[in-house]
Protein backbone atom coordinates (compact mmCIF):
# COMPACT_ATOMS: atom_id res chain seq x y z
CA UNK A 1 0.00 0.00 0.00
CA UNK A 2 1.15 3.53 -0.71
CA UNK A 3 0.56 4.71 2.84
CA UNK A 4 2.85 2.06 4.28
CA UNK A 5 5.47 3.18 1.80
CA UNK A 6 5.10 6.78 2.90
CA UNK A 7 5.36 5.71 6.53
CA UNK A 8 8.55 3.79 5.79
CA UNK A 9 10.10 6.64 3.84
CA UNK A 10 9.09 9.59 5.96
CA UNK A 11 8.01 8.22 9.35
CA UNK A 12 11.28 9.24 10.98
CA UNK A 13 12.29 11.86 8.44
CA UNK A 14 12.30 14.60 11.06
CA UNK A 15 15.14 12.76 12.81
CA UNK A 16 17.05 12.36 9.56
CA UNK A 17 16.19 8.69 9.07
CA UNK A 18 14.63 7.56 5.81
CA UNK A 19 14.29 9.14 2.40
CA UNK A 20 16.63 12.11 2.04
CA UNK A 21 14.63 14.12 -0.47
CA UNK A 22 11.28 15.49 0.59
CA UNK A 23 8.40 14.73 -1.78
CA UNK A 24 8.58 17.15 -4.70
CA UNK A 25 5.71 16.48 -7.12
CA UNK A 26 2.54 14.39 -6.91
CA UNK A 27 2.38 14.80 -3.17
CA UNK A 28 -0.09 12.32 -1.74
CA UNK A 29 -2.26 12.86 1.32
CA UNK A 30 -0.46 10.00 3.08
CA UNK A 31 2.90 11.65 2.61
CA UNK A 32 1.58 14.89 4.09
CA UNK A 33 0.03 13.19 7.10
CA UNK A 34 3.12 11.06 7.77
CA UNK A 35 5.68 13.80 7.30
CA UNK A 36 3.82 16.37 9.38
CA UNK A 37 3.31 13.73 12.08
CA UNK A 38 7.01 13.00 11.96
CA UNK A 39 7.66 16.69 12.53
CA UNK A 40 5.42 16.58 15.60
CA UNK A 41 8.20 14.62 17.31
CA UNK A 42 10.18 17.82 17.54
CA UNK A 43 7.26 19.73 19.04
CA UNK A 44 6.83 17.04 21.66
CA UNK A 45 10.57 16.91 22.33
CA UNK A 46 10.84 20.66 22.84
CA UNK A 47 7.67 20.82 24.88
CA UNK A 48 8.44 18.00 27.29
CA UNK A 49 12.06 18.91 27.96
CA UNK A 50 11.45 22.65 28.33
CA UNK A 51 8.49 22.03 30.61
CA UNK A 52 10.37 19.41 32.63
CA UNK A 53 13.45 21.53 33.29
CA UNK A 54 11.44 24.73 33.48
CA UNK A 55 9.31 23.46 36.34
CA UNK A 56 12.22 23.30 38.79
CA UNK A 57 13.74 26.59 37.71
CA UNK A 58 10.31 28.23 37.97
CA UNK A 59 9.86 27.05 41.56
CA UNK A 60 13.24 28.55 42.44
CA UNK A 61 12.38 31.80 40.65
CA UNK A 62 8.98 32.08 42.32
CA UNK A 63 10.50 31.58 45.76
CA UNK A 64 13.18 34.13 44.91
CA UNK A 65 10.57 36.65 43.77
CA UNK A 66 8.67 36.20 47.02
CA UNK A 67 11.86 36.64 49.04
CA UNK A 68 12.11 39.68 51.32
CA UNK A 69 15.81 40.09 50.48
CA UNK A 70 16.23 42.69 47.72
CA UNK A 71 19.36 41.06 46.35
CA UNK A 72 17.48 37.84 45.63
CA UNK A 73 14.15 39.36 44.67
CA UNK A 74 15.31 41.92 42.12
CA UNK A 75 17.15 39.54 39.73
CA UNK A 76 14.16 37.19 39.73
CA UNK A 77 11.76 40.07 39.05
CA UNK A 78 13.88 41.30 36.15
CA UNK A 79 14.28 37.86 34.67
CA UNK A 80 10.53 37.31 34.75
CA UNK A 81 9.80 40.77 33.35
CA UNK A 82 12.25 40.42 30.47
CA UNK A 83 11.03 37.04 29.34
CA UNK A 84 7.34 37.79 29.82
CA UNK A 85 7.46 41.31 28.47
CA UNK A 86 9.09 40.61 25.13
CA UNK A 87 7.97 38.44 22.22
CA UNK A 88 9.26 34.89 22.14
CA UNK A 89 9.92 35.42 18.46
CA UNK A 90 12.44 38.19 19.19
CA UNK A 91 13.98 36.12 21.98
CA UNK A 92 14.61 33.31 19.53
CA UNK A 93 16.29 35.68 17.08
CA UNK A 94 18.41 37.34 19.70
CA UNK A 95 19.60 34.22 21.44
CA UNK A 96 20.37 32.58 18.13
CA UNK A 97 22.57 35.50 17.09
CA UNK A 98 24.27 35.42 20.48
CA UNK A 99 24.99 31.71 20.12
CA UNK A 100 26.33 32.18 16.60
CA UNK A 101 28.80 34.71 17.97
CA UNK A 102 30.15 32.21 20.52
CA UNK A 103 33.75 31.20 19.82
CA UNK A 104 33.96 27.74 18.28
CA UNK A 105 35.47 25.52 20.93
CA UNK A 106 35.01 21.89 21.75
CA UNK A 107 35.37 20.24 25.10
CA UNK A 108 35.61 16.54 25.78
CA UNK A 109 34.50 14.94 28.97
CA UNK A 110 33.41 11.55 30.20
CA UNK A 111 29.87 11.25 31.42
CA UNK A 112 28.84 7.90 32.94
CA UNK A 113 31.80 6.29 31.27
CA UNK A 114 30.91 7.61 27.80
CA UNK A 115 33.25 9.98 26.00
CA UNK A 116 31.33 13.04 24.92
CA UNK A 117 32.79 15.69 22.70
CA UNK A 118 30.65 18.75 23.33
CA UNK A 119 30.96 21.69 20.99
CA UNK A 120 29.75 25.24 21.37
CA UNK A 121 28.47 24.91 17.82
CA UNK A 122 25.59 22.91 19.24
CA UNK A 123 24.15 26.06 20.78
CA UNK A 124 23.34 27.37 17.30
CA UNK A 125 21.42 24.20 16.49
CA UNK A 126 17.71 24.08 17.17
CA UNK A 127 17.76 20.97 19.37
CA UNK A 128 19.86 22.73 22.01
CA UNK A 129 19.62 26.47 21.31
CA UNK A 130 15.86 26.64 20.85
CA UNK A 131 15.39 24.34 23.82
CA UNK A 132 17.32 26.77 26.02
CA UNK A 133 15.16 29.70 24.87
CA UNK A 134 11.94 27.76 25.44
CA UNK A 135 13.21 26.63 28.83
CA UNK A 136 13.99 30.17 29.96
CA UNK A 137 10.73 31.50 28.55
CA UNK A 138 8.47 28.93 30.15
CA UNK A 139 10.39 29.29 33.42
CA UNK A 140 9.51 32.97 33.50
CA UNK A 141 5.81 32.46 32.72
CA UNK A 142 5.53 29.52 35.13
CA UNK A 143 7.39 31.42 37.85
CA UNK A 144 4.81 34.21 37.65
CA UNK A 145 2.01 31.66 38.01
CA UNK A 146 3.72 29.97 40.96
CA UNK A 147 4.49 33.31 42.55
CA UNK A 148 0.81 34.26 42.42
CA UNK A 149 -0.15 30.94 43.96
CA UNK A 150 2.57 31.25 46.59
CA UNK A 151 1.07 34.52 47.77
CA UNK A 152 -2.38 32.97 47.93
CA UNK A 153 -1.46 30.13 50.27
CA UNK A 154 -4.07 30.45 53.05
CA UNK A 155 -2.65 32.13 56.11
CA UNK A 156 -4.40 29.61 58.34
CA UNK A 157 -2.38 26.79 56.80
CA UNK A 158 0.87 28.56 57.60
CA UNK A 159 -0.29 29.37 61.14
CA UNK A 160 -1.20 25.73 61.63
CA UNK A 161 2.26 24.74 60.39
CA UNK A 162 3.79 27.10 62.95
CA UNK A 163 1.62 25.60 65.67
CA UNK A 164 2.90 22.15 64.78
CA UNK A 165 6.46 23.37 65.06
CA UNK A 166 7.19 23.16 61.35
CA UNK A 167 9.53 25.79 60.04
CA UNK A 168 12.00 26.57 57.30
CA UNK A 169 12.57 23.92 54.69
CA UNK A 170 10.24 21.42 56.33
CA UNK A 171 7.35 23.85 56.32
CA UNK A 172 7.99 24.71 52.71
CA UNK A 173 8.18 21.09 51.60
CA UNK A 174 5.18 19.83 53.54
CA UNK A 175 2.78 22.78 53.56
CA UNK A 176 3.66 25.70 51.30
CA UNK A 177 4.80 23.81 48.23
CA UNK A 178 1.91 21.32 47.93
CA UNK A 179 -0.66 24.07 48.41
CA UNK A 180 1.09 26.29 45.88
CA UNK A 181 0.99 23.49 43.34
CA UNK A 182 -2.67 22.85 44.00
CA UNK A 183 -3.56 26.51 43.55
CA UNK A 184 -1.32 27.02 40.54
CA UNK A 185 -2.21 23.83 38.68
CA UNK A 186 -5.09 25.08 36.50
CA UNK A 187 -3.06 28.05 35.29
CA UNK A 188 -0.02 25.85 34.89
CA UNK A 189 -2.02 23.53 32.64
CA UNK A 190 -2.76 26.46 30.37
CA UNK A 191 0.91 27.37 30.39
CA UNK A 192 1.83 23.83 29.35
CA UNK A 193 -0.58 23.89 26.41
CA UNK A 194 0.72 27.31 25.58
CA UNK A 195 4.30 26.12 25.54
CA UNK A 196 3.57 23.24 23.21
CA UNK A 197 1.96 25.73 20.85
CA UNK A 198 4.98 27.98 21.12
CA UNK A 199 7.24 25.18 19.91
CA UNK A 200 5.73 25.72 16.46
CA UNK A 201 7.73 28.95 16.29
CA UNK A 202 11.14 27.30 16.54
CA UNK A 203 11.87 26.71 12.89
CA UNK A 204 10.24 29.96 11.85
CA UNK A 205 12.63 32.02 13.87
CA UNK A 206 16.25 31.97 12.93
CA UNK A 207 17.11 28.42 13.95
CA UNK A 208 17.72 26.61 10.66
CA UNK A 209 16.22 23.21 10.03
CA UNK A 210 19.38 21.14 9.61
CA UNK A 211 18.98 18.86 6.55
CA UNK A 212 15.28 19.80 6.46
CA UNK A 213 14.66 18.09 9.78
CA UNK A 214 11.90 20.37 10.95
CA UNK A 215 8.82 20.37 13.11
CA UNK A 216 5.21 19.85 12.07
CA UNK A 217 4.61 23.42 10.97
CA UNK A 218 7.85 23.47 9.01
CA UNK A 219 6.66 20.57 6.87
CA UNK A 220 3.13 21.95 6.60
CA UNK A 221 4.53 25.22 5.36
CA UNK A 222 6.72 23.29 2.91
CA UNK A 223 3.67 21.50 1.51
CA UNK A 224 1.64 24.69 1.33
CA UNK A 225 4.43 26.32 -0.64
CA UNK A 226 4.78 23.31 -2.93
CA UNK A 227 1.13 22.62 -3.68
CA UNK A 228 -0.08 26.20 -3.17
CA UNK A 229 -3.04 24.65 -1.42
CA UNK A 230 -3.31 25.61 2.24
CA UNK A 231 -6.48 23.60 2.82
CA UNK A 232 -4.74 20.26 3.32
CA UNK A 233 -1.48 20.68 5.29
CA UNK A 234 -2.62 23.31 7.80
CA UNK A 235 -5.72 21.41 8.94
CA UNK A 236 -3.48 18.37 9.40
CA UNK A 237 -1.20 20.36 11.73
CA UNK A 238 -4.25 21.74 13.49
CA UNK A 239 -5.55 18.22 14.00
CA UNK A 240 -2.25 17.01 15.47
CA UNK A 241 -2.12 19.95 17.83
CA UNK A 242 -5.69 19.47 18.98
CA UNK A 243 -4.87 15.84 19.79
CA UNK A 244 -1.74 16.93 21.64
CA UNK A 245 -3.72 19.55 23.56
CA UNK A 246 -6.33 17.00 24.59
CA UNK A 247 -3.56 14.67 25.74
CA UNK A 248 -2.02 17.40 27.89
CA UNK A 249 -5.43 18.21 29.41
CA UNK A 250 -5.91 14.53 30.20
CA UNK A 251 -2.53 14.13 31.91
CA UNK A 252 -2.66 17.42 33.78
CA UNK A 253 -6.26 16.75 34.76
CA UNK A 254 -5.18 13.49 36.42
CA UNK A 255 -2.48 15.31 38.36
CA UNK A 256 -4.98 17.99 39.35
CA UNK A 257 -7.31 15.38 40.77
CA UNK A 258 -4.44 13.94 42.77
CA UNK A 259 -3.38 17.34 44.11
CA UNK A 260 -6.95 17.97 45.29
CA UNK A 261 -7.65 14.53 46.69
CA UNK A 262 -7.68 15.62 50.35
CA UNK A 263 -10.33 18.29 49.85
CA UNK A 264 -14.12 17.94 50.03
CA UNK A 265 -15.77 18.15 46.62
CA UNK A 266 -16.93 21.76 46.78
CA UNK A 267 -13.50 23.26 47.53
CA UNK A 268 -11.53 21.60 44.75
CA UNK A 269 -9.92 23.80 42.15
CA UNK A 270 -11.30 23.02 38.74
CA UNK A 271 -9.32 22.99 35.55
CA UNK A 272 -10.43 25.82 33.34
CA UNK A 273 -8.81 25.41 29.99
CA UNK A 274 -8.23 28.63 28.15
CA UNK A 275 -5.28 27.91 25.92
CA UNK A 276 -5.75 30.69 23.45
CA UNK A 277 -2.94 33.02 24.33
CA UNK A 278 0.21 33.66 22.42
CA UNK A 279 3.50 34.94 23.70
Amino acid sequence: MICAEALQDYGLRALGIGERLLPQTDISLCQQIVLIGSGMMWNVYFGILALGFGFFFAVALAVAKASPARLIRKPAEWFIFIFRGSPLFIQFFMVYEAFVMLPRVGIEFTFLGVEIAAETRWFARAWLGALIVLFLNTSAYTAEIFYGALRNVPKGDLDAADAYGLSGWKRFRRITFPTTMRLAWPAYTNEAIFLFHATALVFFSSFPAFQQRGDALYYANYFADRTFNPFVPYPIVAFYFVVLTLLIILIFGRINVRLNRHLPNGQRTRLRIRPQLMR
Binding site: A200, L217, A224, P230, Y234, V237, F241
Partner: peptide, 20 residues
Amino acid sequence: MVRGVPDIVFFLFFILVLDQ
Protein backbone atom coordinates in the same frame (compact mmCIF):
# COMPACT_ATOMS: atom_id res chain seq x y z
CA MET B 1 -11.89 27.81 16.46
CA VAL B 2 -8.64 29.25 17.74
CA ARG B 3 -8.42 27.05 20.83
CA GLY B 4 -6.10 24.13 20.81
CA VAL B 5 -4.20 25.16 17.71
CA PRO B 6 -1.13 27.41 17.65
CA ASP B 7 -1.99 30.88 16.39
CA ILE B 8 0.89 30.87 13.98
CA VAL B 9 -0.84 28.09 12.06
CA PHE B 10 -3.80 30.41 11.60
CA PHE B 11 -1.58 33.25 10.52
CA LEU B 12 0.09 31.21 7.83
CA PHE B 13 -3.22 29.63 6.83
CA PHE B 14 -5.41 32.72 6.59
CA ILE B 15 -2.98 34.86 4.68
CA LEU B 16 -2.97 32.28 1.86
CA VAL B 17 -6.70 31.60 2.08
CA LEU B 18 -7.57 35.30 1.95
CA ASP B 19 -5.25 35.88 -0.98
CA GLN B 20 -6.65 32.95 -2.93
